[in-house]
Amino acid sequence: MSVKLRLGLPKGSLQESTFQLFKRAGFNISVRSRSYYPSIDDPEIEVVLMRAQEIPRYVNEGVLDAGLSGLDWILENEADVVEVADLAYSKQTTNPIRVVMAVAENSGIKTVKDLEGKRIATELVRLTRSYLAKNGVTASVEFSYGATEVKVPQLVDAIVDITETGSSLRANKLVVIDTILVSTTRLHANHKAWADPFKKEKLQNLAVLLLGALRADSKVGLKMNLPKDKLDDILAILPAMKHPTVSQLINSDWLALEVVLDEKQVRDLIPALRRGGAQDIIEYPLNKVIP
């Protein structure tokens, strides 16, 4: 029986963005609607879908060799795991998520100290209790099974919740009084798997490809041709700290130039490059950027 890396991937809100990230990294994952065991086009990997909240616990206990879950859930599970890679993506953006303490707009609660003796609802019970203890505050912390934002102020005085954009908090007339943790998705492994040469190399290779796909997010390549005497003008137009590849066109006084840029810069750069003498400008997407 061949050895496989058993990898836990998050089911639910992170699932689609995770599958897209793996696709850009070169892995195709497909799953039937009710299946928890997707197929992946790598015979050395076995994928298990489960809630991100549970993945670090199963990795820590050795049920999974490795998994993708947020730092918040690794800390909440008090999981003793090896961090393989910090993958800065979430369900909507490539920005970190925040674990925040939030209260009703008109509650009069301004700081964590004002929560002494109050009631707090959260999915992150251990993380919340640890935060309160560090601040010398005694409060009742209860587990929330969902819809946490709507419990303030009728049922609880405050919540600790995960936010990516803050829109849900604002919609429920809540304000953030403190950020407890800034969290990103982590590829993490248990110590036994990390000590296995095959699984360690497999994880390291996976990390290189996933990080390369993330670096390519919001970046594009530009190719163009230009006369030799326009090179300095074109280099002056390109953003500082960029090092384009410049090559000589055969039997010509023209050069070919290629550079990788942030996609948001290109809209303004292309007309400027055209005015500066560049021709045959080609913009193309990137799948991976490996430094």
Rank of each mutant, 00 (worst) to 15 (best):
K4H: 14
E105S: 02
A147I: 00
Q248F: 07
N225Y: 01
Q204C: 08
T138G: 11
S247R: 13
F198M: 03
R6K: 13
E142A: 13
I29N: 10
T122V: 09
A25Q: 07
Y284F: 12
E83L: 11
S69T: 09
V260C: 07
V175Y: 05
A193R: 11
P227F: 11
I162V: 15
Y131N: 10
T111V: 00
I180S: 04
A121W: 03
P56M: 10
I237S: 02
R215I: 00
P239V: 05
V176A: 13
L209K: 09
L21M: 14
T185R: 05
I159N: 02
M241K: 13
P38K: 07
K110Y: 15
N205T: 08
G276W: 02
I74Y: 08
L235Y: 10
R119I: 10
E283R: 07
L7E: 04
I159H: 01
M101H: 10
L211Y: 03
K4T: 06
L238Q: 04
L169R: 10
V100S: 05
Y58L: 07
V246C: 02
V3L: 15
S2T: 07
G26P: 05
V182F: 09
A240V: 15
A278L: 01
V112C: 03
D268F: 03
A52L: 08
A240T: 09
K113F: 09
L75V: 14
G8M: 05
H188M: 15
L5S: 09
I282G: 00
S35M: 13
L214R: 01
I159E: 01
E78V: 07
K264T: 11
K200R: 15
D217Q: 08
V160F: 11
V84Q: 11
Q53V: 08
D232T: 01
Y36T: 15
R126T: 15
K192M: 10
V266A: 07
S90I: 12
S33Y: 10
V125T: 08
G67L: 14
K192R: 12
L214F: 00
L9T: 05
N251R: 12
V160N: 14
R32I: 02
R126S: 09
N135P: 00
L68D: 15
R267V: 14
I270H: 06
M224L: 09
I159L: 03
P56S: 10
I159A: 08
I109V: 15
I281A: 01
V99F: 08
A147P: 07
L68K: 05
K134G: 09
D65M: 10
D41R: 05
K134M: 10
Q154K: 12
I55P: 11
T165A: 08
A158Y: 04
S252W: 08
